[in-house]
Simulated scan of single mutants.
Amino acid sequence: MLDRIAWLILALIHLAPALAFFRPAMLTRLYATDAQSPTFLLLHHRAALFVVVCTLCVWAAFDPGTRRAASVAAAISMLSFLWLYWQAGSPPSLRTIAFADLAGLPFLAIVVWRAFSPA
């Protein structure tokens, strides 16, 4: 049961940016990017990748066979953002996203440990 809860929390963390794929106006609100900017297109594509991560997390909540791949995808998503955020000097405009990923790290640790520990 702990596994399923941790996976669903990770899915929730990735849900808002994933929804931006279906509601592109959210990109302007989330990232303060003008819809006419080329960066907007990249962020829209980024939202599609969040759909993948969110879907994998939900899938892993119910199918243990997907947990290793899903944990790698979630770890790359969260840890790469936190690393880049820190390297960029921790821009205040992205602080909420960083806090969400930081809050998810204990759940990520649980799912990675459980996915890769011997049965």
Rank of each mutant, 00 (worst) to 15 (best):
M1G: 15
D3L: 12
W7Y: 01
L8N: 04
L10N: 03
L10F: 08
A11D: 04
A11Y: 07
H14I: 02
L15N: 10
P17G: 08
P17D: 11
A20C: 04
F22M: 06
A25H: 14
M26W: 15
M26K: 09
R29M: 13
Y31W: 14
T33E: 07
A35Y: 09
A35N: 11
A35G: 14
Q36P: 02
S37H: 14
T39E: 10
T39I: 14
F40H: 12
L41H: 15
A48K: 08
V53F: 02
V58F: 12
W59R: 05
A60H: 04
D63S: 09
T66R: 08
A69F: 11
S71M: 04
A73R: 05
F81Y: 10
L82P: 01
L82Q: 02
L82E: 00
L84G: 09
W86K: 06
A88S: 10
P91L: 03
P91Y: 11
P92V: 11
P92G: 02
L94A: 04
R95C: 05
T96C: 01
A100N: 10
D101E: 12
G104P: 03
P106C: 01
A109Q: 03
I110W: 07
V111N: 03
V112Y: 06
R114G: 07
A115C: 07
S117F: 10
P118Q: 11
